[in-house]
Design a protein around this nucleic acid. Structure first.
Lengths: 137, 137
DNA sequence: CGGGATCCGAGACGATACTG
DNA sequence: CAGTATCGTCTCGGATCCCG
């Protein structure tokens, strides 16, 4: 980073007291945020809010996600301690995904966002048409 | 969800009654969701929750965002009717960004998510270290 | 100051094939 | 079933230059 070694502005970063610093460049909470607000994060988390699901159940529930991305998403969420993974070495294998307590809190709040967006979709689509009409023509 | 307990399949899309279908592949609410949960969406929205800001004020508040991405983000949000843009043709020009009522609701809920993540960051980091320790070694 | 236009690399993402 | 590995595409996103 620092070619000359000088820059590194003593990153007290985002741990300043109670300061609310997702806005800070290097705050680890920003990384977490990108995990849970990533393309598939919110959908996976809220899907698990309803019940424990197996890998392919989850995959069917979240339409359009590829195996690879679901796998990646779940790994990130497991690493962050939001999702718990239980593998049974049976044949065929069975793996269950559950929310941890923290994951449940996060998921519930994400659900609030999604629910709001969902119910206000008509307004949003109207706004889009207005915007496009003014600019497009 | 449905009164009779049947699973409300027949994916006509996501406008089925009150069905909760961000999970549906082509639901427009999913597009909106990606706008507000994009990389810079949550930060821009919650920054505007505090006050009205001008372009470069916003840019300084949200550390690390490039002009291009901030511009794009704001345009998406304006199109969705979440952000209001006021341009004054003075010299130098002055452009203010504000939340619409709907934008404020969304931002408030996003703030709840961010606040939670922020306060639980220690737990999350601990979980990460545990995860990495088990796997990495 | 508040952007738009362009170029370019890195990484996200999807499809497919393969493993245990 | 539950993934991993590989590969190709394509978008995201930063850097730069420019304009009103």
């Amino acid at each position: 980073m620092t070619a000359d070694g000088t820059v590194q502005q003593t990153v007290t970063g985002c741990n300043d007291a109670l300061a609310f610093n997702v806005f800070s460049r290097d705050c680890p909470s920003r990384e977490t945020l990108s995990d849970i607000t990533g393309r598939w994060g919110p959908l996976a988390l809220t899907a698990l809010l309803e019940n424990t699901l197996r890998f392919n159940e989850l995959r069917r529930r979240v339409e359009g996600v590829s195996e690879k991305m679901l796998s990646q998403t779940l790994q990130s969420l497991e690493r962050d301690g939001l999702v718990h993974r239980t593998a049974q070495p049976t044949n065929p294998p069975r793996v269950d995904y559950t929310l941890t307590p923290l994951g449940e809190e996060v998921a519930r709040r994400l659900m609030d966002v999604i629910e709001l967006v969902q119910t206000r979709t008509p307004d949003i689509e109207a706004a889009r048409h207005r915007y496009d009409a003014e600019r497009g023509c």
